[in-house]
Structures are given as structure tokens and as C-alpha cells.
Computed example of a mutant assay.
Amino acid sequence: MTKTARIDPADLSRRPLVVVPGFMSDSRVWETQVRLLSRYLPVTVAPVTGGGRVEDVALALLDDLPRCFTVIGTGLGGAIAMAMLQRAPERIAGIGLIATSPLAETPAKAAEREPWIIRARTGRLRGVMQEVFPSATLAPGPRRGQIMAEIADMADDLGTELFVEQSRMLQRRSDQQATLRRADQPGLVICGVHDKIIPARRQLFTAELMRHARIEILEDAGHLPLMEQPERVSQILCDWLLPRVEVEELRQTG
């Protein structure tokens, strides 16, 4: 395995950025962040498809991505980001994880997905998504209903076959604790206090695994900080990715 040189956080501003959506979501969850960050960095939204395992998707993406880049993933996208880090650490300038766990799926959780897969294949995907992603895992507030509707719309657009494919990815994903312990890159972990899918304490543990990680805990967010607190997440990412002068400029022009 190629040894990774220590990368100063300020160097991230000179690297392309790759963002990876989570389970049954697409570029819409990254809309606010991409709109801001693309003023300063080349930004690619990576598709989460093309294999029955997280590692398959990671390898396929690495074939098409720049030689060196920063990757930020949310949920399932975080698992893919960690798989890219495991496979090609010398190509990863920095890694950001949002609402993500490095742990493998438990047998009980993997078994819980089987009835969801069966029901989704019978045309009940929208109802299944309400169980996979209950509203209680978002922070309370007036936007909760709107976000839940947007999640259901994305799932409808992406379709049942992708639901099955991504469910299998989650069931089979590998434990990545050792990958994070070895990482010498700048790291960022963003978690919402109200996240019931990946509880905040588990995400704190994720940050503790990395040598150079920064943790941001959002009081008014749950499992989807990107959509629940888009401006706050955008500012966190700008502070992490961009030199101070660019951040100040962004604050003045945003």
C-alpha cells in the first residue's frame, strides 16, 4: 500500500472535491453546498450505483476521478468514501463524513432490510422509505415534512432496482475502523444531535478514530444535515476546505 504524505488542511483548497450522496438520494441533497463551493473548487457529484458492494462502487469511481481529490460522503456515500480511502489512500487529500458509521451492518439490521426489499419490489417503495427513513430521525421543526416529501420524491425517481442495489451495499459493507485509524489526511465529521439512524455518540467515535479529524455537532439537525441545515453545513465545509481569505470573501458575497 502506498504511504500517504501528510496534507495540510489549507492544501484542500487546491484539490477537486467529490461529494457522494447517501441512500436513495442524488445531487439534490448537495444542491446548496455545490452551488457555493463550485465558485472556488471543481465539484463532482458521484453516482452511487454500479455494483452490489460498496467496494465495487468505490473502485468504479476511482477509475474516473482525478488523481488526487477531497471526498465527502453522507450516509451510504460516506461508506463509499471510506472504501476509496482504503483502496487508494495516496489519492485522497481529505475525507469528510456526514451521518456515517465505519461499522459493518449488524446481522439483525441486514435481516431487517429483506422485507423492505420484497415490499419495494411489489410497488410499495414510497411506503417502505417511510420505514427505512422515519421522520423522527430528523430534527423537529417546520421543514421536517417538506424534507420527508423530497426524500420520497428522490426515491421514486431513482426507482426500485436502485433501492435493492443500495440495500445490498449496506448489508455487505465492510468494517472500516482500521482504515480510519491509518488515515493521515485531514478529516471532518458532521453529525446531527437528532440522528436516530447513526446516533451522535457513534459519530463521535468515528471522529476519534482519525488522527486529524474535526467534529461538528449540529443541535438542530438529524440524519440529513445537508438538507436540514444547508447554510450551516455549507459554512462548515467552506471553513474546512478554503483558505481564510476565501471564506471571508464568501461571507461577504453569499
Rank of each mutant, 00 (worst) to 15 (best):
T74G: 09
E249S: 06
M129I: 15
I217H: 02
T253E: 11
E161Q: 12
E165H: 04
R168G: 00
E165Y: 03
F133W: 04
Q235Y: 04
A110M: 10
V193A: 13
L250T: 10
I117Y: 05
M227A: 13
E150T: 03
V18D: 05
F69T: 03
I198K: 01
E161F: 02
R39E: 15
V18N: 02
G52P: 01
R181D: 01
E219Q: 14
A93P: 02
A136V: 14
I151G: 00
P47M: 13
P140Q: 15
R168A: 07
G222K: 06
R214V: 10
R182E: 15
S101M: 04
E231N: 09
L103Y: 09
P9C: 05
A88F: 01
T179K: 04
A178L: 10
V45C: 08
C191I: 09
A120W: 01
V71Q: 03
G141P: 09
F163Y: 13
F205G: 14
A207N: 07
G187C: 11
G123Y: 09
L65N: 07
T32Y: 11
R121P: 00
V48A: 13
A99Y: 00
F69G: 03
A5K: 08
L158F: 09
I190W: 10
R214E: 14
G222W: 03
G75H: 08
A81G: 09
E161D: 15
T253I: 12
P140C: 14
R35D: 14
L61G: 00
I95K: 02
P102H: 10
Q33V: 11
R91L: 01
W30H: 05
L162M: 13
A152Y: 02
R14P: 01
S38T: 15
G187F: 04
A60L: 12
Q252C: 05
R168P: 03
E219G: 10
G123F: 07
D239L: 07
T179D: 05
L59V: 11
H212M: 00
L226Y: 03
R67G: 10
R6A: 12
A152W: 06
Q203I: 09
W116M: 14
I198A: 08
A111S: 12
E219A: 14
S234I: 00
L125R: 03
V247R: 06
M129V: 12
R113I: 07
L218W: 05
D153H: 07
L85E: 08
V71G: 00
L62N: 12
Q229S: 08
A110P: 08
M227F: 02
L158K: 06
K109C: 06
P66Q: 12
L12I: 05
D157M: 11
G52C: 01
Q166R: 14
E248G: 00
I98C: 09
P140G: 15
R39T: 15
I72M: 04
D11R: 12
L241Q: 01
A88C: 08
C68R: 14
L218T: 06
G77F: 05
P89T: 11
H194D: 14
L65M: 11
S167C: 10
S135M: 13
F205P: 01
A155M: 10
